[in-house]
Write a protein that binds this DNA or RNA. Structure first.
Lengths: 151, 151
DNA sequence: AACCTTTTGATTGCACACAATTAAATTTTC
DNA sequence: GAAAATTTAATTGTGTGCAATCAAAAGGTT
């Protein structure tokens, strides 16, 4: 009896068993939850992430923002231009390296920080887990992110 | 001495401490990893998710696909039209309810299943965690998803 | 039957998200 | 110092992703 040249492979895992789909779905659900909390500020979730960084660092290059957010200029440039139009930040070339674009928070952008103070707390309620669980889960995701970044 | 009407609030959590950002970043990294594995099939990750469902169920309405993938018709309609153009599936109105659109897998779409067999294994290597960890993490994400869906 | 409500997809408009390419400026190499 | 390689953003094109709106069809009510 000849060996089977095409042995049956195990069936593809069902969608509802897949970790990757869960991460994908959860990410979109979280973004949607943020959108509700952020609509008072009239910012999107990716824009809020940019603001979080600028509130902390005052000024960052597009490159630095991209490194921290894992987003490239194809995403960031139009997003930052929209935020510039609203007067939240400024975009200018670096004097010492004309290739770099420096993003600086403006007073109007700084003013949003106060309004945003309650968001983390509200969101944790939205998601419905304890701070301990948040921390635990966060720790577990880090190695996956690290592993995928270096590819 | 009067009580302070505006006590200082705790600082906003740093980006690299936020679970939500980790989920968001991980989701995009996973999609990118899938894209590499899927480029031989010339499908995107969301299209692959549709195929996974059609390989299992043969035919589903747009509504049913949307329920399973947590995507609405604004996303699915153009995506399914692209897949129809490539001959992977058909779109037709249900006879008993002209509002419903039934998506049916075609032979060309079915043929992709064989080529996709190795993807789950390859991806688990890509992510770099054990099956036990995958299962564990997956279990932890379910309550968050359930909690956010019912909002 | 005529009306009302609900369900279902499609459509529209806007905002990411990223691969690939281009262009400009800097750094390295010789 | 000139040439080559690298770095950095911008641009372009394609594909999601979703809120809001529209239109058609089904089901229910009187």
């Amino acid at each position: 009896m000849p060996t089977n040249a095409f042995p049956p492979l195990p069936p593809l895992p069902r969608l509802d068993n897949q970790l990757c789909f869960s991460v994908y779905a959860l990410s979109r659900l979280i973004t949607k939850a943020y959108q509700k909390l952020l609509e008072g500020l009239d910012v999107t979730y990716p824009q809020y992430l940019v603001l979080l960084l600028l509130w902390e660092h005052e000024a960052l290059t597009v490159k630095a923002l991209g490194n921290k957010l894992l987003l490239d200029s194809g995403t960031l440039t139009p997003l930052l231009k929209r935020m510039e139009q609203r007067g939240w930040l400024s975009r200018r070339r670096a004097a010492h390296d004309e290739r770099s674009v420096i993003i600086t928070i403006l007073p109007a952008g700084r003013a949003l920080e106060l309004q945003a103070r309650e968001i983390p707390l509200k969101l944790s309620v939205c998601i419905g887990i304890t701070p301990a669980q948040v921390s635990d889960l966060h720790q577990q995701l880090q190695p996956l992110i690290k592993h995928l970044i270096t590819k």
